[in-house]
Structures are given as structure tokens and as C-alpha cells.
């Protein structure tokens, strides 16, 4: 992949879990260094779109490419950092922040042990997100905002080029949300590509440079300023939506 190649490229992608399409004729190109937010109402296909981008689902029609390769065949997982609302493990799982962040090195070491250099990278990632002092705490005992920062640190530890976040601030208090987006912005300023699936329109319009408004199909794709001025939101949601509320 050359520098000019897109990180993500969807061309006329359609997908449905049944015969009904959840995503229809979606085309999307994300270039290196962009900060793109996808917004839309509940059930609009945002998370499905994310899974198509990541190659976790294969399109029924169209093509999905990741770093130039077909997304479902892309095998350099270290280049992608993924942050979800929450991990799938039980809430009682005794695991520390450091152990979670170390997972970011697993694509690099495979079946091997982490080297001294791997541990240094983990420590640096913890420090970058301000979680070094919390490294040996159980992650389930942290607040929502701290947990999400730990997941960002995991992505940094993997030295990802693309950060994909699926509604990362659900259940996080307002103060921590702001701190979280400040961190995201500083990482983006350092050159990381950000794809954010988000329900919080205020956060999107304040932080993302480009907005994609989705409700099965793309209603808007362009600069955030133009999105705020447009009627895309009202059309996508089927009603007037004040920017600054939850999508």
C-alpha cells in the first residue's frame, strides 16, 4: 500500500443479516490521517458498517478494502486498534489494566513471550493515555472513562495506524467524555487515522473533521461544518434533531 492509498475503501457495499438490507449501496473512502465520525439513529447500520470495514462481515454486494486488501482477508491486525463500548468478558474477570494493554502486543509476538521492548511500548502507551498509575488495578474496578482509555492504550501498544471506536462513550460521565475526546484529538494530531461510530452528536460536531450520516444508506458525507448546516440529520432521522443531543 502506498501513502496515497486509502485506509478504508467501501464501494457500493450492501449487506443484510436476512433478506432485508441493513446497509445499502454505501461507498466510503477514508484516507490516512483523517478523523471520520459515523452518526445515525439506532438501527441505522452504523455498527454493521463498522464490522464490514473491519472484515468481520463480508458484503453481500460491493467491495470492502482495508489498507488496500479485501477487508475479510486483511491479516495485519496490529495496524488496527479497536475500542468497543465494553469487553465481552464477565465483569468479575480479574485482569489488570496492564494485562489488557499487553494484548496490543499479541499480534506482534504471536505464540511467543513479550520482550523487554514490548514491555517498554506497553508502558509508553499507558503513560500516553494517563493510565500508568492505574496499570496494576483491575480494569473492572475503573470508571467507564478510565476503561476506555485503557482500550485506547491497547490500540497504541499495537502501534495501530487506524483506530476504530464503536460508541466508546456510552455510560461514561460528561467530564470523562470530554477528556476522552481530547485524548483522541491529540492522537489524531500525531497522525493516527480515526473512525468513530458515535451516538453523541455534540461530541461528533466538536471533534471530528468529517461526518458520515447513515441510515441504511449514506445521507451525508462531508466536512463537519457543512453537516451542521445541512438537513441531512432531519432526513436521516425522519425528524428535526438538534445537533448537541444524542443520535
Amino acid at each position: 500500500m502506498s501513502e496515497a492509498d486509502p485506509v478504508v475503501e467501501l464501494a457500493d457495499v450492501s449487506f443484510g443479516y436476512t433478506s432485508a438490507r441493513v446497509v445499502e449501496d454505501v461507498s466510503l473512502r477514508i484516507d490516512p490521517g483523517e478523523y471520520v465520525a459515523v452518526v445515525g439513529p439506532n438501527g441505522s447500520g452504523k455498527s454493521t458498517l463498522m464490522r464490514l470495514v473491519l472484515g468481520l462481515l463480508r458484503p453481500d454486494a460491493g467491495t470492502a478494502r482495508l489498507f488496500g486488501d479485501p477487508a475479510h482477508k486483511f491479516d495485519d491486525g496490529a495496524r488496527i486498534g479497536y475500542v468497543a463500548q465494553q469487553a465481552s468478558a464477565s465483569k468479575e474477570m480479574p485482569i489488570t489494566v496492564r494485562e489488557v494493554v499487553r494484548m496490543g502486543r499479541y499480534p506482534h509476538v504471536g505464540f511467543g513471550r513479550l520482550s523487554a521492548e514490548d514491555h517498554r511500548i506497553v508502558d509508553r502507551a499507558l503513560d500516553t493515555v494517563g493510565m500508568y498509575d492505574f496499570a496494576d488495578r483491575r480494569i473492572t474496578n475503573l470508571s467507564g472513562g478510565q476503561r476506555q482509555r485503557a482500550f485506547i492504550a491497547r490500540a497504541l501498544a499495537s502501534e495501530a495506524d487506524l483506530l476504530v471506536l464503536d460508541e466508546p462513550t456510552v455510560g461514561v460521565d460528561a467530564e470523562s467524555v470530554d477528556a476522552f475526546y481530547d485524548l483522541l484529538e491529540s492522537l489524531h494530531a500525531d497522525g493516527i487515522t480515526v473512525l468513530l461510530i458515535e451516538h453523541d452528536l455534540r461530541a461528533v460536531t466538536e471533534h471530528a473533521a468529517r461526518v458520515v450520516c447513515l441510515n441504511r444508506e449514506v445521507y451525508f458525507d462531508g466536512p463537519t461544518d457543512a453537516f451542521v448546516e445541512s438537513d441531512a440529520l432531519a432526513r436521516a432521522f425522519g425528524t428535526a434533531m438538534p445537533v448537541g443531543g444524542d443520535a
Partner: peptide, 8 residues
């Protein structure tokens, strides 16, 4: 999901 994304 994160494990799948990382290539496992």
C-alpha cells in the same frame, strides 16, 4: 471482537 480484529 477485538481479538478477531487483531487477526486471531
Amino acid at each position: 471482537t477485538a481479538a478477531a480484529v487483531s487477526g486471531i
